[in-house]
Design a protein around this nucleic acid. Structure first.
Lengths: 210, 210, 210, 210
DNA sequence: AATGCTCCAGCTGAGC
DNA sequence: GCTCAGCTGGAGCATT
C-alpha cells in the first residue's frame, strides 16, 4: 500500500496514480466481497451440518428477496408448468399444485356443481386396494367433470390419494381441447390479447427489481 | 479453406498442419452447434407466439431429460422448500404441495385420526365470508391436529380454500417443535437411518448419458 | 413416441398435442446439440493427448470467429492493459506488447530521435551480468526518452533483454504524467472527445464512499 | 429481527426458529454483498467517466489477484497462443509477444548466431517503402534463421516494423516442422514426458469420428 | 441496434 | 472413484 507517488522528485505521474487509486479501491471492495462470500459459505455449511437442506434454504432466501412482480411471474410459470405437465400426462403421483388450481379456476368460473364423487365417496382410506382401473376411472371422471363445467378445485379426491393426480390430468387434458386456440388458462397472462398471438413485443415493461 | 500445406516445397510443417486440422474440426462443430441453438430459439419463439409460456416449456423439457436420481433429488428439495416455507409462515395462499404432504406423511405415520373439522364442517362454499379470524383458527387447528398425531394430509380444507394453507402452516410449525433436534422430515434424506434399509443408493447407477 | 392423439374417440386435445410437438422438437434439437458438444470435447481431448494446449486452441478458435469490430476492440483492451500494467510497474520481465507500442506511437508521432542507447550499446549479450542497477538505469532512460519526445518503439533493447521492460515501464510512467488529464493513449478511443473529460463530480478519485 | 419465539405460549418451535436464524443471517450477508457489488460498479463507472478503460482495469485487478501458479499458467497459455497464431499465419501485424520469445528460447538454446540481418541491415527507417515482397522476404528469412539454429529473439527487426511479425511467422512455422512430433515449445510444460505423449491411436488428427 | 447486466449451464479443481 | 462446490463462458433480457 506504500504510495509510490513522489518517489521521483520533480515529477508527478498523475494519471498513473489516479489509475492506481481506482484499482486499489476496487481491490479493497473485491476483498470485502470475497470475505462476505466466505461467511455465507460458512453459514450454509453450519446449517447443513445441523440437518437442513441448503438448496432449499437458498430457494427460500431467493423467494424472500423477490419483488412482488417477480414473485407473481414465478408463480405463474410454476402454475403453467403444472398445467402443461398435466396435459402431457406427466402427473404421475404429483397432482396439480394448489396455486395452479386457483389459477385454472379464475377465467371462466361460472358453472355450477352439485355432487363431487364420480361414483363412490372420495374417502382415502382404501388406499392400498386401488387398481390401475381406479386410476383410469378417476382420470376419465376428471375429463367428464371438465366437460360438464366443473372447476378443477372440485377434484373430489383428497391430497395423498393417487386418484387425485389422475383426475387432474383428465381435467387438464380436457381443458386444452376442442381444436380451438390455446386455452386462456394455458397462456401467460390475460393481458388484453384477445386473438392476436403475434406478441407485438411484451407488455411487461418495468421489470426492474427493488 | 485452401490448404497451405506443401506451399513451401521441400518442407512440411507437420505440427502446424495438425494444429490447423484440430482447429478446423472444432470450428466446424461449433458452427453446427450454433446453428442448432438458433433452431431452438426459433422453435421457442414460435411456441411463444402461439401463446405458450416458454419458461414453463423449458422447465418441462429439463424435467423430462432428468435421470431418476436427479428427479428424486429435485422433488426432495422442492418438498423441503415447501416445509420450510410453511414453518416460516410464508404460505400465504399457497398451501403445501401434495408431494410435500406425502413426504411428511411417511416417517411416523402411525397415529389414528377420526374426525377432521376443527369446529365447523370444511365446506368451501362460504369463501367470501372468511375472516382473518377464520384463518387464524384454521392455523391453530392445524397445530392442534399435529399435536394430536394427525397427519398433514388430514387437512380438512379443500384445495382453493385459504384456510387450507393456514392449517398447513400451523401443522408444520408444530411439527418443528419441542426443543428437540431437527425433525427427520426436515432433513434431506433417510440416509442410513436404522428404520429404512431400502433405497440401496440409487436405481440409476449408470447416470451418464450414452 | 407413440402418439396419444385420438386415443379418446370423439375428442381431440389440440392444445396439448401442439404443446407436445413443440416440446419434442426442442428435445430433439437439444439432443443433437449435446451430441455435438460431446464431439467437441472429444476433439479437444484428442488434441490435448497429442500435446497441444487446449486453452490456447480455444483462444485461437475464438479469435478466428471474431468479427472485425470485436477484434479491434479486443486488441485495444489488450494494448491498454499493457499500458496500464507498465504505468503501475507490473512489467516484470514482460515488456510491452508490440501492438501496444504501435498504439502508443500513433497520436503524437512527431518527435525526432537520433541515438538510441542510454549509455551503452544495446547488445543483449551480457545478459547474465545485468544488475538491478542496470535495470533501474534502463527505466530512468525510458522516462528520459519519453520526456525528450522519443517514441516507445525507440526502445533500444531487444526482445528478451530484461532492460527492455524497464525502459518501457519508465516511458509509460512518464507518458502518464504532468498533472494534466489522462493521456489520450490511455483512453479507449479517440471518439470525438476533444478535450472534455467532464466528470465534474470529483477530480480526486480516492474520495469515494469508503 | 423481532423474534416470534414464544409468541405461542407453552410452545416453542425450536427447529423453525433455528431455520429462521440461518436464513436471516444469510439474507443479511447477501445484502452486504450486494451493497459492495454496487460500490464496485460505482467505482468502475467513475473510472470510466475519467477516461479509463474498465475492461483493462478489470484485467489488471484480476492479474494482481492471481496466485503465482495461476499467473504462470496464464502466461504459458498466452505464449502458446502466440506460437500457435504464428504457426497458422495469423500474425498479421502483431508480432510474437516478448514472453513468447523467451519461452521459445529456453528449451534448446545452444545454437550459435553471428550476423543478424537477412540481407540488409535491420534499420526501420524506410517504413513507408516496404512492399509485400519485403514482408515475404522477412518471413523466408525467419524460416531460414530457424533452420540455421538461430533463436527467435534474434529477430533483427525492431518493434513496430511490419517485417518483425513476418520473420516471427516464418521462424515459428519452421519450428513446428519436420514430420516429427509436436515441438516441445508447443507443449504446455516440460512435464516428465520425454517423447511419448501416448495417444497411439492415430498420428493423423483428421481421422476422428466425423 | 448496440450495449451492458444477469442468469444459467457446463467445465474444472478439490475433497471424502 | 465419485461427488461437489466454484467458476468461467455464453445466452437471454432489459435498456438507451
Amino acid at each position: 500500500m506504500a504510495r509510490k507517488k513522489q518517489a521521483q522528485p520533480g515529477h508527478n505521474s498523475a494519471a498513473a496514480d489516479e489509475l492506481r487509486v481506482y484499482i486499489e479501491r476496487i481491490e479493497r471492495l473485491e476483498s470485502d466481497k470475497a470475505e462476505i462470500a466466505q461467511d455465507i459459505k460458512d453459514v450454509k455449511a453450519e446449517a447443513k451440518s445441523r440437518g437442513f437442506d441448503v438448496k432449499a434454504i437458498e430457494k427460500i432466501v431467493k423467494e424472500r428477496g423477490e419483488t412482488e412482480k417477480q414473485r407473481r411471474r414465478r408463480k405463474e410459470t410454476e402454475d403453467l408448468t403444472d398445467v402443461y405437465r398435466a396435459a402431457l400426462g406427466m402427473l404421475d403421483g404429483t397432482p396439480l399444485g394448489d396455486s395452479a388450481r386457483e389459477r385454472l379456476m379464475k377465467p371462466e368460473a361460472e358453472p355450477a356443481q352439485d355432487d363431487a364423487a364420480p361414483g363412490e365417496e372420495p374417502g382415502a382410506r382404501q388406499r392400498a386396494t386401488l387398481t390401475s382401473e381406479d386410476i383410469a376411472a378417476a382420470k376419465e371422471a376428471g375429463r367428464l367433470a371438465c366437460r360438464e363445467g366443473k372447476r378443477v378445485i372440485d377434484n373430489p379426491y383428497t391430497a395423498g390419494d393417487p386418484r387425485r393426480a389422475a383426475w387432474d390430468e383428465g381435467w387438464c387434458f380436457e381443458a386444452g381441447s376442442d381444436g380451438m386456440d390455446i386455452p386462456s388458462a394455458w397462456r401467460r397472462s390475460e393481458k388484453k390479447k384477445p386473438a392476436r398471438p403475434d406478441a407485438p413485443k411484451d407488455g411487461e415493461p418495468g421489470d426492474g427489481e427493488e
